[in-house]
Amino acid sequence: MEKMRLSSPAFQDNKKIPAKFTCDGDNINPELVIENVPRGTKSLALIMEDPDAPNGLWVHWVVWNIWPNIGKLVEHSEPRESVIGKNSWGHNQYGGPCPPSGTHRYIFRLYALDAVLDLAGTASKGQLDVAMNQHILAETSLTGIYSESDGPS
């Protein structure tokens, strides 16, 4: 079986995320295509984070209990029947790239899990990490780049 893959028609891995998906644009999530989910997967989890934030890791989006056969996450929408956790702003929604300075990496991490998680929507990335422990069958990632100078002048 091929390795699980995460890609986007909006940007290539390690390339610039279009402003549309950032705080300089519409601040909506890009389409994400999911391929080669391993057999035995009961749910998927997705974390979008910025490891280059001034105060350490900044979480932009946390989603779990995504159906394993979903195929893709549609632009500007949340997967049906999934749970959206709290991001670093304290909101249960996607928060696009919005770097205060410099160029930042935004990593979309996708996890295939052998369980559906019993985790409330009030949970954070840290709580999701604990709940996923011992349940990860596979993981993959997609990285986008965005700079404060990429926005409108």
Rank of each mutant, 00 (worst) to 15 (best):
S8E: 00
P9Q: 08
A10D: 12
F11K: 01
Q12M: 15
D13Q: 12
D13H: 15
N14F: 15
K15D: 12
A19K: 12
K20W: 10
F21S: 09
T22C: 03
T22P: 01
G25Y: 04
D26R: 09
N27P: 04
I28P: 01
N29E: 08
N29C: 01
P30A: 01
P30Q: 02
E35I: 00
E35P: 00
V37N: 04
P38E: 10
T41V: 07
A45M: 07
A45C: 03
I47L: 14
M48F: 03
E49L: 11
E49G: 06
P51H: 01
P51G: 02
D52W: 05
A53K: 01
N55D: 11
G56S: 00
L57A: 03
H60W: 02
W61H: 10
W61Q: 05
V62P: 08
W64C: 08
W67T: 10
I70H: 09
K72V: 02
V74R: 11
E75N: 01
E75C: 03
H76M: 02
H76S: 06
H76D: 13
R80G: 13
V83D: 11
V83Q: 11
V83W: 15
I84E: 11
I84R: 09
G85E: 13
G85T: 14
N87T: 06
N87M: 10
S88T: 11
H91P: 01
Q93R: 12
Y94K: 03
G95L: 05
G95M: 02
G95Y: 02
G96V: 11
P97A: 13
C98R: 04
C98D: 06
P99N: 01
P100L: 03
S101C: 00
G102E: 04
Y106H: 03
I107Y: 00
F108H: 13
R109H: 09
D114W: 00
L117I: 08
A123Y: 11
A123Q: 10
K125Y: 14
Q127W: 05
L128K: 06
V130D: 12
V130E: 13
A131I: 04
A131N: 11
M132L: 15
L137H: 02
A138W: 07
A138E: 15
A138P: 10
E139G: 06
L142R: 10
T143L: 07
G144K: 08
G144S: 13
Y146W: 12
G151M: 08
P152H: 15
